[in-house]
């Protein structure tokens, strides 16, 4: 009796797992099943038992996660070949919520890990989802070199203008005059313009959206995943707890209304013109879309050449 029960459980488990493994063809089927049972259509891509997530009310990170999951499905890639790498911070938690192969690395080292992953297994579709502090402060050097080498991956950088998880300290993206825990009279440092840095370092696809542009973000993620080379998408998100409270920006919903009113979409402009100040209009859009040989293809060619043309 017990054995039978176990066997049934095992079969059931195997059955559901095989459906999960064969994600590429069964996404629509999954969605329909979830909708019929009253569960959210993205539940099969979220780790069971991890929702609700830890992000605050009004935070945009949940929207980024939804957009990424929709985008990766829309891209039509085999979900068994998708790997997600993230670093430390509020955004770094994303890897722990996605029910795909994911890794949560040490602070700032998401890109070196992802580069190694891609080189060891070139057929993987690697996505790095991390925050501005992780990718541009402690991991800044890794970012410029991954972009310079044109490693084939998608980097989704969520910019909330501060170190949110540790209580809201000044980050390399904090706008001038913004008040934070470590700049009580206003920040005096010049911030990074992230799309400009990425484009100048050699990224082949550079875009910026806010969390309100969820639909365009989905399209952008799908496009960038399919684009060979180093694709960089910056997502502007509010941090109602640690950044927008000292700066009197209001709650999450007020910031969403701000994005609605003050965002200008300018596709194809020079990212140099896309600077961000404290609650000044934000320029969004797809800034760079070009093609260049990727790191792994160059490496393979070089190996072939060194062997005298033999593969």
């Amino acid at each position: 009796m017990t054995e039978g029960h176990d066997e049934h459980d095992l079969q059931h488990h195997n059955g559901s797992s095989s459906v999960h493994r064969d994600r590429s063809g069964t996404v629509a089927l999954h969605e329909r099943h979830h909708r019929e049972t009253g569960e959210h259509p993205l539940d099969h891509l979220l780790r069971p038992g991890r929702i609700p997530h830890i992000w605050c009310t009004g935070c945009g990170l949940g929207v980024v996660l939804t957009a990424y999951l929709n985008g990766i499905q829309k891209a039509g890639v085999d979900l068994d070949k998708v790997a997600i790498v993230s670093g430390i911070g509020c955004t770094g938690r994303i890897a722990g919520y996605i029910n795909l192969d994911s890794f949560h690395t040490t602070h700032g080292r998401a890109l070196p890990f992802a580069t190694g992953l891609k080189l060891a297994n070139p057929e993987l579709k690697v996505s790095v989802i991390s925050g501005d502090g992780d990718l541009f402060a402690i991991g800044g050097n890794h970012l410029i070199h991954a972009a310079r080498r044109n490693v084939d991956m998608l980097v989704l950088c969520v910019n909330n203008f501060n170190y949110g998880m540790t209580g809201g300290q000044v980050a390399p993206t904090t706008p001038v005059t913004a008040r934070t825990q470590t700049s009580p009279y206003g920040c005096w440092e010049h911030p990074f313009n992230l799309p400009y840095v990425a484009a100048a370092s050699g990224a082949v696809y550079v875009a910026r959206w806010t969390v309100l542009h969820a639909r365009r973000l989905v399209e952008s993620v799908a496009e960038a995943v399919r684009h060979p080379g180093f694709s960089f998408i910056e997502v502007i998100s509010q941090c109602p707890t640690n950044f927008d409270r000292p700066n009197k920006g209001g709650e999450g919903i007020d910031l969403m209304h701000f994005y609605e009113k003050k965002t200008v979409v300018k596709n194809g402009i020079d990212p140099k013109e896309a600077d961000i100040g404290l609650y000044t209009p934000i320029v969004c859009g797809k800034f760079v879309d070009q093609s260049k040989p990727t790191y792994d293809s160059c490496y393979t060619n070089m190996c072939t050449m060194a062997r005298g043309g033999k593969k």
Binding site: R35, L65, N70, A214
Partner: peptide, 15 residues
């Protein structure tokens, strides 16, 4: 389907 896209908590969906 915009509510489904913009909900950060996976708490709403549209058929």
């Amino acid at each position: 389907g915009f509510c489904e896209l913009v909900c950060p908590d996976f708490a709403i969906f549209v058929d």
